[in-house]
Design a protein around this nucleic acid. Structure first.
Lengths: 228, 228
DNA sequence: ACAAAAGTGTTGTGTTTACACCCATGG
DNA sequence: CCATGGGTGTAAACACAACACTTTTGT
């Protein structure tokens, strides 16, 4: 029984797919590796799990160390452990995906020494390890999830216009959405609070709205189903 | 860099939540532990991942070793790694859920020495480790998944009646479904093939049907959305 | 002949889609 | 005053929900 624990053990890491939205398209935050293997290649932020550290804590710690991001939406994706995915030996990685608001984006060069940069989905460089594969899985998950869970708001400023929200959905789902129908439906859900606050700029000001999680949770408990 | 790999490593296991359906309710297959800790307690089948073994292979191997089940539907759930979940030390477990057909159910006592038994959801014993927690997560996933993915068929014989299928959905979703509407909708999807085969028994024979994965996949590719 | 489960259509209601014009602002 | 994006309603098509009786078999 005790010897069971003396089996050689795989190394355990976490990796994070960090999504952002720039008003036009989805983006992913990558870091340039400063060590071998794949020195100089772009990769997902991540690193080794410590012995007494919860998995989510490890993901948040690595995210902050490598990208200065804190307090983001973070959810487990799944675990990748095919032998050979890391040339150094057996490494199993618990993958996560994060959603960050534009106002949380790390300033350029904020990250000590190691480079971090946003890339648009569709304009991604080749990635280290099996990170393309992890990224593809995260994207698929996000596309599925956004349709029936209110996660899109995590990619927008706390106060946003309905046009911004629509652009986000169009970018993630990859199809145009009718403006009137979209507004009608979302407002009918009654968890977007219209504010007395407006954008300014070159054209007609747009009203800002806020996502009210309390109202959403209350409705969700009553068996309500969000579905765009 | 090389020393990175000399960090102490958590132990890595897999655990499987095995679902079955007896015609009336959902069931879960548990094994009685033959070793400490939790000797004699009921637990999910599972065990340690070997050094050169893929995670899914490990799950399938443990499933066969402990329950004699092979060739089942198996999908990763998520990974549980909170420090303290295993009294022996840091153990991270990649959890899976499996769906097995009634005709695949292992015969009683099929499993060498170690006991395995089906328990109805709702009549479960206390489980070892954090296995109640894993089981609850698996159940939630199954309830969500069955509504928009054709996984229910993995819990029925290959040839089944529409009444059996409806009973399955009612059991998992926990609410009654209208017979005529249910049939109309499922048949309209056009991936259930009616067979020239019927049940026999005390009453009017019921026509058997088969799930045609090819037709489903073809429709799914065309952007079709299953939704009960 | 009866008990038990299988099988089958129609109608009203609500939801989704398609579609075009006026409004407010800054330059 | 013009260019740009913000904002609004209605009608037709479709999908969903509610509902009851006849058929087939074994006993």
């Amino acid at each position: 029984m005790a010897h069971t624990y003396e089996f050689p053990r795989p190394a355990l890491t976490v990796d994070c797919v960090v999504f952002g939205f720039d008003g036009t398209g989805l983006q992913v935050l990558l870091i340039r590796r400063g060590i071998e293997p794949f020195l100089g290649a772009w990769a997902l932020p991540g690193g080794f799990v410590r012995m007494e550290e919860d998995l989510e804590d490890a993901a948040r710690r690595e995210l902050e160390e490598e990208t200065s991001l804190r307090d983001v939406f973070l959810e487990q994706l799944r675990t990748f452990g095919t032998p050979g995915r890391d040339p150094r030996g057996r490494v199993v990685s618990v993958a996560w995906y994060a959603l960050v608001r534009p106002d949380q984006h790390p300033a350029k060069g904020d990250t000590d020494a190691s480079e971090a940069a946003w890339f648009p989905i569709g304009g991604l460089p080749g990635l280290a390890f099996d990170h393309d594969h992890i990224l593809a899985a995260a994207l698929e998950r996000l596309r599925g999830k956004i349709r029936y869970q209110p996660v899109g708001f995590e990619l927008l400023p706390r106060h946003f216009t309905l046009t911004q929200l629509q652009a986000l959905y169009e970018a993630i789902l990859g199809r145009p959405i009718d403006k009137r129908n979209f507004r009608k439906k979302l407002l009918s859900f009654d968890f977007l609070t219209p504010l007395d606050e407006f954008t300014s700029g070159a054209h007609r000001p747009a009203r800002l709205h806020r996502f009210d999680r309390r109202k959403y949770d209350a409705a969700a408990k009553r068996g309500f189903l969000f579905d765009l």
